[in-house]
């Protein structure tokens, strides 16, 4: 008896079930999600990232930074990403709308290094936000900035060039063994500058309506603001699971 056609039909339907259920349904329901227009500010969020940052994202992608860094802040109470007594990796959890303008979404799956989603808005121990200068030094040799850092050096994003006239404003301030030879300076390459511009564009600080209604496990939390009942119910269900 030849059952091959029936097996084939079953095999087809089985995968079609999850393809339609997961891939197509999601594409149809929120694949056409739109930006949030804030009339007070006259802008559509998330903001378009500047051109240099977009180039920098390609550098981030080609160096495979995603192998060690996630870009998703989990909600308060789930891990220690955000909320009270957390690592403060974000002012709020990441939501789907944050990624709308990205042609490639790199939420990542490993935290060998810290999450970077809200990197540019994050203050260090001294209470300052990252600057291009500190990032250049960090990428050139992470131990210059944080002596315990386990990140490798990205010295190949920098070049040594002869100082002609005024020294470059982007030149690294290096001393000791790192210092450039006399008459020379170490400056970021175009890729290095782009990467830093990208890292400095990583800011998810705008509060969308859907970010306000997040369920957090410890009961006495601030009550929901806007009446976005649906989101709230969904999040709750999920949180209790």
């Amino acid at each position: 008896m030849n059952r091959a056609p029936f097996i084939f039909l079953g095999v087809f339907c089985a995968l079609a079930f999850s393809f339609v259920g997961l891939v197509l349904t999601n594409q149809l329901t929120y694949g056409s999600f739109t930006t949030h227009v804030d009339e007070d500010e006259g802008k559509a969020f998330p903001l378009q990232s500047p051109g240099l940052a977009a180039q920098g994202k390609l550098v981030y992608q080609d160096l495979g930074c995603v192998a060690c860094h996630t870009q998703q802040v989990r909600r308060p109470g789930f891990g220690s990403d955000t909320g009270e007594g957390s690592r403060g990796w974000g002012e709020r959890q990441s939501v789907a709308r944050d990624y709308l303008r990205e042609s490639r979404v790199l939420i990542g799956s490993q935290r060998v290094g810290p999450d970077l989603r809200n990197f540019a808005a994050r203050k260090n121990a001294a209470g300052t936000e990252p600057t291009a200068e500190s990032l250049y030094h960090y990428l050139f040799d992470p131990t210059l900035v944080s002596k315990d850092s386990a990140m490798p050096r990205y010295a190949f994003l920098f070049k040594s060039q002869q100082i002609l006239g005024e020294p470059s404003t982007k030149a690294l301030k290096l001393t000791g063994t790192h210092a450039a030879q006399p008459g020379y300076e170490i400056v970021p390459t175009a890729r290095g500058e782009a990467l830093v511009a990208y890292l400095l564009s990583l800011k998810d600080t705008y509060a969308y309506p859907e970010t306000k209604n997040v369920y957090t496990p410890p009961a006495p939390q601030k009550k929901a603001g806007a009446p976005h009942g649906e989101t709230k119910v969904e999040e709750k269900k999920e949180g209790h699971q």
Partner: peptide
């Protein structure tokens, strides 16, 4: 595709 549908 747009946004985190990619992650799905």
């Amino acid at each position: 595709v747009r946004g985190t549908v990619q992650s799905v």
